[in-house]
Computed example of a mutant assay.
Amino acid sequence: MKTVAQVLKLKAAQNHAVHSVTPGHMVLDAIKLMAEKNVGALLVMEADRLLGIVSERDYARKMVLKGRSSVGTPVSAIMTAPVRTVSPAQTIEACMAIMTDSHLRHLPVVDEDGTLLGLLSIGDLVKEAIAEQAALIKQLEAYIRGD
């Protein structure tokens, strides 16, 4: 099974940038950025420090359902913190288990120093798991045929 580091390399090759906001950004600006970049979550950063994550789910549950205004509410009021993170050495399988057990759709990847290396979505992990299974099926078919 591939590691997080290997998946991040593939994402880097496809030029998948990590988008972020500061805790002081207004929620409306964060939602506009998500729409513009076609992403479901933004990391909340201050300098190089990961403080939290804000997602469409946070917006729906903490803004819309509570009747709050997106214009005057800072991201810090609705972000999820602390953030569950993974290391580059973890496997796709371990990340999928974390996401399933914790009901997460995004996992920031940080090294042992706490430096942000990237962001994985459940879609990234499912795509890799399917690719690995397809490769395994081809190998097994070749084995059965005696190739």
Results as ranks from 00 to 15, higher is better:
2 K>N: 14
2 K>R: 14
4 V>E: 01
4 V>K: 02
8 L>A: 05
9 K>G: 00
11 K>S: 03
15 N>L: 15
16 H>S: 11
18 V>N: 09
22 T>V: 13
24 G>S: 14
25 H>R: 06
28 L>A: 15
28 L>Y: 15
29 D>N: 14
31 I>K: 13
34 M>H: 02
40 G>E: 00
40 G>N: 02
41 A>Q: 03
44 V>W: 03
50 L>N: 03
53 I>P: 11
55 S>D: 05
58 D>Y: 04
58 D>G: 05
59 Y>K: 02
59 Y>W: 14
61 R>T: 11
61 R>N: 08
66 K>R: 13
68 R>A: 09
73 T>Y: 01
74 P>F: 08
74 P>I: 05
78 I>Y: 02
80 T>N: 13
81 A>W: 06
81 A>Q: 04
82 P>D: 10
84 R>P: 04
86 V>Q: 07
88 P>E: 08
88 P>S: 11
90 Q>M: 12
90 Q>C: 01
91 T>E: 10
92 I>P: 00
102 S>G: 06
103 H>F: 08
104 L>H: 05
105 R>C: 00
105 R>I: 07
109 V>D: 06
109 V>W: 10
110 V>K: 04
112 E>T: 15
113 D>Y: 12
114 G>S: 06
119 L>M: 15
120 L>T: 03
122 I>R: 03
129 A>S: 13
129 A>I: 05
130 I>V: 15
132 E>N: 09
133 Q>D: 06
134 A>C: 09
135 A>C: 04
137 I>R: 06
142 A>K: 15
142 A>S: 15
